[in-house]
Design a protein around this nucleic acid. Structure first.
Lengths: 206, 206, 206, 206
DNA sequence: TATGAATGAGCATTCATTCAT
DNA sequence: TATGAATGAATGCTCATTCAT
């Protein structure tokens, strides 16, 4: 429980976050992480069972933090529903840009192998909770009552968000720069989406 | 440049395409490709400098083929503009699902290393050409004259498409199954998008 | 199928045999074997799937050869039954001394883990066949008809043989030296055993 | 040399004995021993130079205890000489089964490395003393005067004992189960041996 | 053109051991 | 006396790549 211990742990976590984000989970080696963290590679195993466990422990707090932030926006009654959806989306976007690796591994569960052998329930759970918040926001914004419809529209909105991400995420720019560049596109997307949904539902009714 | 030579080259290309698509670039070994191609793994090096080079050379024809298909749809005057956009999108989707690996490596240039060391100009070029076709289709469909506006709207449409892809691409289902599952979502997305854009532009004008 | 290939394979086999015998399976590393064989450790994997597979492939021919030798003695009608048993025993002894590692790993299946995960059926099969030959020889020699009794006596004879082995096997002497030293002990043992069995059975009958 | 100190030492010794017996020397880690002993793995190094040293120090008392037990039986004049031999043998057998690891490492000095680097004189000494007790028991039982003859017969008896052991020792059964299974075989062996020796000596005399 | 043989660099992981407190 | 923190050396194994023919 010494101070030294926690420092090292944090150094490893920091190094891993940085490297995973930059190069992707598979491409990073334990020795690289150790070097970046300024310790021996065996030291990592003092704090984390194995490589995948390191990734998971590294991801959970971030995801939980994101979820908290979304919840907060969601429950803030002073914001109009359309603005709420936008605010949540922006939060989601900037989180994903900041945590590129987690994004690709967990949000999209890209790296097949990982989730097959390792259900990583915790991560999937929080992912579903985040998606549920999004459904709520979309339902509220579009005044949808039917849950099937809400799901369908949220899905395409969610895909659009992720589409923006995958296209920009790999770029070697700072999060700030990226957010600045992305904002107009994102705003247009959100507005178009909302208008499109309303229009589409009108037609469906008649 | 005998006949035999070209046959072997094609066999390798075919095998690599198949395996990369199925398992992803990293997960496939040169020996596997050779086995599938029915030659020795050393033979591959006669035709391709290294593994990454194989991937690149392998991608170009596919991309060119996709481009041709899109052009054909684009220049077919018998199809209504909205249907044209949808048809092109479906073509794009099924191409990406069929070539999951190229998709992730080239369309999105996801895997950092690749594009750092190797600008892969050719690939980027064709990628831009494909995007231009999409801009045309969107412009036509939404009757946009201004190229800036066209770009902005196409962008969000393109992101939405890619968003659908990244979310589904990793799933271990056949392309047919995936296309069937995706079609309703995709149709809803396309219609919502078109309606949304029209509505948005109306508002912008007034 | 080149000449080089078989040479290397044999070199590896030779090196492994030598090292396994000297230090035991677990204590020998693939790198050591490679060094002794004069090749890279990766080369070993060209010829043998993994370490355990190397051990098995290395053992089978020897065991088969031993079995053939025992069969030959067994079916030689010109030898008296007591001499036959002795001859077979001597063959078994010298085989085990020459192949110390196989002896400990397979005949006694000492290294628990190995045979749990890997039934190594082949090896167990031949081991049982060898034991069966021994039962025949003992039965013939002691004129035992009942198979239960034959088994019981063979068992204690077999244990005695192995007892001699385990006690001497580890010594760093040549097989010839060992055999010379062991022969009187072994002869005494065999004779005592035969006499003892006969006497014991007499008593049992009365 | 406080009381605490000796307690810890004993705890380590106890833990190591238990684990070595159960899993074998190589398979046990210092951390495991420490956990079982309820101390830090670094503490072990306060009391024992290294792992092998721990094994050696741990074995001596056990061997000494075995020796004492054998002496007691040996000097008990109320038991007939044949029964004495059997009783001592059974003691030896159950000791070896209970201490599989010590048995293989020290009695038979199986694991090459150990005795090369470390003559472990103490252990060999006690081993010889135990063997001498066995010679006495055999001499008495067979009424042998000549020490050469006594040695020869004891040797084959000892080998038979060890042969039984090596064949059964590796099995994953409890000592009780094993002893039960082994007793008939062992009794038959002992009786056959005694009868055989007597018979053999008769012949030798005439 | 083609390939079997061979290899160096690298991987995640484990372990006995030492250092600093 | 005791220990948490840290590590170097090693292990089995894989892979893209090169060499010699």
């Amino acid at each position: 429980m010494g101070k030294r211990s926690e420092e090292t742990r944090q150094a490893i976590l920091l190094a891993a976050t940085k490297l995973f984000s930059k190069k992707g989970y598979e491409a990073v080696t334990m020795r690289e992480i150790a070097k970046e963290a300024g310790c021996s590679h065996t030291t990592i195993y003092l704090y984390f069972k194995d490589k995948i466990s390191l990734l998971q422990q590294l991801s959970m707090p971030s995801l939980q933090h994101l979820y908290q932030q979304l919840k907060e926006i969601s429950s803030d009654e002073s914001i109009a529903s359309a603005e709420k959806l936008k605010a949540m989306s922006r939060q989601y976007l900037s989180f994903c840009l900041e945590n590129q690796n987690m994004y690709s591994v967990f949000i999209n569960a890209r790296s097949g192998r990982v989730d097959e052998e390792n259900p990583s329930l915790e991560v999937n759970q929080i992912r579903n909770m985040i998606f549920k918040e999004l459904i709520n926001a979309v339902s509220e914004c579009l005044e949808i009552k039917d849950s099937e419809t809400a799901l369908a529209y949220t899905r395409i909105y969610y895909y659009s968000l992720n589409g923006i991400l995958t296209t920009y995420a790999y770029m070697h720019e700072s999060v700030e720069e990226l957010m600045e560049r992305l904002t107009p596109t994102f705003d247009l997307m959100a507005e178009t989406f909302i208008l499109g949904c309303i229009e589409k539902m009108k037609k469906g009714e008649s």
